[in-house]
């Protein structure tokens, strides 16, 4: 093997909230902020994915810029002056959180409640939620046409959960359209392209072609979309069922790192175990070979581990 190429990167100096900060050229503002210990909320950002800057919760103010900029995507520049907690920034984050909180079910989004409190977001001020859509209704929405209602209820993306296979469910009532699953399924990792963003405006949704059920789609059940989903809209069926029964209890779960037994790649697995049963499999993002991605065997092929001999045999 030839020598490992070394990339020399310049250092740039910028100012974040009045403090001088050194950052590597090509680094994002978010990266520089996080290294400086600043806690900036993110939803659509993924360490292993191309930034799409769609959620707009990580917005910061950059001196000289007419509008706020997404810190997850904007690269640092020499002499840049960044404000991460100005009134404009806080207002933008508050609105994004209110817009999401009033239209999407964030009950399984980590840190959502904490951010709502931090930014004084009050989603309830847009009124009670409108009744959920019937099954398939949002999937059929025609671009450029909508039903407005009378404004007394707040439109939401609520709809029935899609349970069309034994491995994972798609609860699009929890979908914030962060594009991460589409990126993971597409050119960023899996190159399967089973799902894409469809429709337009508030009726935009993540869908297979003509919303065909997953077993009829190109899905290979690698579950890499579940791994990147920030809101729990994509979820192991084992987790979904336990949550529905009220038996999902993370405090009772252990996490065990191991190596996938199936092939020679050697992907790392983290087995989440509750009541002596594997309930979920994840993979650490910092693994140099797989960056947290798995295939169907590593992700879902664990049933044999917990196959018990029937009583009396």
């Amino acid at each position: 093997m030839s020598a490992v190429p070394v990339t020399l990167r310049r250092t740039v100096e910028l100012e974040i909230d009045g403090e001088a900060v050194r950052a590597r050229e090509g680094e994002t503002i978010l990266g520089a902020c996080r290294r400086s210990g600043l806690d900036i909320p993110t939803l659509c950002f993924g360490e292993t994915l191309t930034p799409v800057n769609a959620c707009r919760v990580c917005m910061v103010e950059v001196e000289g810029s007419r509008v706020l900029v997404p810190s997850c995507a904007r690269k640092v520049e020499d002499g840049m002056k960044v404000k991460t907690a100005s009134e404009r920034v806080r207002h933008a984050r508050k609105m994004v959180l209110e817009f999401l909180g009033s239209s999407v079910d964030l009950s399984t989004t980590p840190r959502a409640d904490e951010w709502m409190a931090e930014y004084d977001a009050r989603p309830e001020r847009y009124g009670p939620p409108a009744p959920p859509a019937a099954e398939g209704e949002r999937d059929r929405a025609q671009a450029g046409h909508h039903h407005a209602g009378d404004g007394q209820t707040a439109a939401t993306v609520a709809q029935p959960v899609k349970v069309d296979n034994e491995l994972y469910v798609r609860d699009y009532a929890k979908c914030i359209l962060c594009y991460k699953c589409v990126e993971g399924c597409g050119t960023d990792w899996q190159n399967t392209f089973a799902i894409a963003v469809a429709g337009r405006g508030f009726e935009t949704r993540i869908a297979t072609e003509y919303a065909v059920p997953l077993p009829g789609s190109a899905c290979v059940y690698c579950g890499n979309c579940i791994a990147v989903c920030p809101t729990g809209a994509l979820m192991f069926k084992s987790e979904h069922d336990r949550r529905a029964e009220g038996t999902w209890d993370e405090s009772q779960q252990t996490q065990t790192d191991t190596i996938c037994p199936y092939c020679g790649v050697g992907c790392n697995l983290t087995l989440h175990v509750q009541d002596n049963t594997i309930v979920k499999v994840t993979s650490p993002l910092d693994h140099d070979v797989t960056s947290g991605n798995l295939c169907v065997k590593g992700r879902f092929g664990f049933q044999h581990v917990q196959s018990r001999a029937p009583k009396g045999v």
């Binding site: 800057n53 769609a54 959620c55 999401l100 239209s103 909508h146 359209l177 337009r200 405006g201 508030f202």
Partner: peptide, 18 residues
């Protein structure tokens, strides 16, 4: 604006509805 928002970013997708 609600109809013509592309739906990509949250402020416009939901803001135009609100």
């Amino acid at each position: 604006f609600r109809d013509e928002s592309c739906g990509q970013c949250v402020p416009c997708r939901v803001g135009t509805v609100r």
